[in-house]
């Protein structure tokens, strides 16, 4: 766990632009993918939600060990947060950092697509 300091989980949803700039500097410093600030939106403890949480943790541990931060938001408890991140499908994983903002929907069972969605597969394939 030697990664950079974690972004506080309660980061304001609206200010994506300044967050994006810090993300790019962080990536430059590391020379690789910087901190992944991920937010997973679920609605209640549905099988899909639970599967998504489990799948996300697995992918992150495998590919982003120490460089990620997961925030799970249950819309059943905080419905007003849905509009801010334009959540429609459940579950939705939002990659807030690094920029650009990415949305990945579904229970994250298709690991390949999750990696592509998080730009991890593309980065890995590049060198």
């Amino acid at each position: 766990m030697t990664g950079p300091a974690r972004v506080p989980p309660a980061a304001p949803a609206a200010s994506t632009a300044p967050a994006a700039s810090t993300a790019s500097t962080a990536a430059d410093v590391d020379g690789d993918v910087g901190l992944h600030h991920l937010r997973l939106y679920v609605a209640g403890q549905t099988p899909k939600s639970l599967a998504a949480i489990a799948n996300l943790k697995k992918v992150c541990e495998e590919h982003l060990a120490g460089r990620y931060d997961i925030e799970v938001i249950d819309l059943m408890e905080n419905p007003k947060l849905a509009a801010g991140d334009q959540i429609l499908a459940i579950p939705t994983l939002v990659r807030r950092l690094p920029a650009p903002l990415k949305r990945i929907i579904g229970d994250l069972s298709n690991t390949e697509r999750v990696l592509v969605g998080l730009d991890i597969r593309a980065k890995a394939a590049a060198p």
Binding site: P79, I87, L88, I104, I105, D107, L108, S109, R113, G117
Partner: peptide, 15 residues
């Protein structure tokens, strides 16, 4: 958007 498995539109309902 990247679709990575099963999902529903509960978010729409919530909103």
């Amino acid at each position: 958007i990247e679709e990575t498995g099963e999902y529903d539109l509960e978010g729409l309902f919530v909103r």
